[in-house]
């Protein structure tokens, strides 16, 4: 009898605990429509937006977030691994290259937006498989106590300048926006020149940290003279009153331009909740989400043609963005990653 009691107890525990999904923080009470969103935007920034969507529509969002050290690539690979039996509906990527790669691999379906003209044509897929919104830029964050104004770097090539040997930093270029940046460099400069630049940066004893946030903090604390990071991490140090300055690199007329890259949103092919997914996508592409991202701590740059909000880091029109075809960058991504893995980060 005791075995039956124990067995029944275990069964009850299992039934109670292993329900198909636990109620997530963004879910409305009670059963109803739902959407599964994989998002590589930091959880603290994405969660309030998803929660607001649920509040407005009653559609529960089941989110999966990424870890900083394997940002974006981890989620994109999860979508690939689940290609035969997708469970993700919406991929909210905080960069562009991995979304384009998923499209090239046939893992997305058209968004079916009624009107996407409010997003600049260069920042959305011509075939309608993905759409960009709210951009960030790759910047050099400089410690103003350590680097005098007349010596401040103006190009990412300064990471290879022997003057700053061992005092410059960047995030692990296998994941996240740093991997995206390397892919863009391979596409823009060509494999040989980009690889030579990365080799020179490595030879200059660059500090490779686990994420862009760490780079920004190390610069702000004076551990590094300057580092390559994202605007959202850079602006957090600026907002905290640290002695730092943001430099948009390679903005001079003959420079290659600053990498400005949008968030992208896409609908997964075979998405189990495609209709709810489309509603989430429409919400994410609305001017108010961009405004919230611009005003919020990540200070993202609005791309909507009617955007009323401005970011603390500036407007898109004030920047000199790097001109590279997203498809070419996506095509270079794997080659760049292989180079980084086997040469730049070789143990």
């Amino acid at each position: 009898m005791w075995t039956v009691r124990i067995g029944a107890g275990v069964l009850l525990l299992c039934l109670a605990g292993c329900e198909r999904e636990s109620p997530p923080p963004t879910q409305a009470a009670g059963p109803g429509p739902e959407v599964v969103a994989y998002t590589s935007l930091d959880q603290q920034f994405a969660e309030p937006i998803l929660r607001e969507f649920t509040r407005r529509t009653g559609i529960a969002v089941r989110p999966a977030y990424d870890t900083e050290s394997t940002k974006t690539v981890g989620l994109a690979n999860r979508i690939r691994a689940e290609a035969a039996r997708p469970r993700c509906d919406v991929f909210w990527n905080n960069e562009v290259v991995n979304t384009v790669r998923l499209k090239e691999e046939g893992l997305l379906q058209p968004l079916g937006l009624a009107d996407a003209s409010h997003i600049p044509a260069a920042l959305r897929d011509p075939d309608g498989y993905w759409c960009g919104f709210a951009a960030r830029a790759r910047v050099l964050l400089v410690n103003t106590d350590l680097v005098p104004a007349d010596q401040r770097p103006t190009s990412i090539r300064a990471l290879a300048d022997p003057r700053w040997r061992g005092r410059v930093g960047m995030a692990k270029p296998l994941f996240g926006s740093t991997a995206t940046h390397v892919a863009f460099l391979f596409a823009k400069l060509g494999d040989a020149e980009a690889a030579a630049l990365l080799k020179a940066i490595r030879a200059n004893e660059v500090q490779v940290l686990s994420g862009n946030k760490g780079v920004a903090e190390a610069v702000a604390a004076g551990r590094l003279a300057f580092g390559l990071t994202d605007t959202d991490d850079a602006v957090a140090e600026l907002d905290a009153g640290r002695p730092v300055a943001i430099i948009f690199p390679d903005s001079e007329p003959d420079g290659m331009g600053t990498l400005v890259f949008p968030n992208t949103v896409a609908l997964i092919k075979g998405a189990p909740h495609a209709e709810a997914g489309r509603r989430l996508i429409e919400y994410l592409l609305s001017p108010e989400v961009e405004a919230e991202l611009a005003r919020g701590p990540s200070a993202q740059i609005p791309l909507h043609v009617n955007a009323s909000a401005t970011s603390r880091v500036g407007r898109l029109a004030d920047l000199r963005p790097m001109v590279v075809d997203f498809g070419a960058a996506a095509e270079a991504f794997q080659r760049a990653a292989r180079f980084v893995e086997q040469e730049f980060l070789a143990p």
């Binding site: 636990s22 109620p23 997530p24 879910q27 603290q44 900083e68 993700c88 994420g211 760490g214």
Partner: peptide
């Protein structure tokens, strides 16, 4: 669990591991 956890199963360990990469803050 970091690799296998399905969407919307909020585990303390995975959340802490994710947040740790940003340094120690209030949350």
């Amino acid at each position: 669990s970091k690799l296998v956890v399905p969407p919307a199963v909020p585990l303390l360990s995975v959340r802490a591991f994710t947040l740790l990469h940003f340094g120690v803050y209030h949350d």
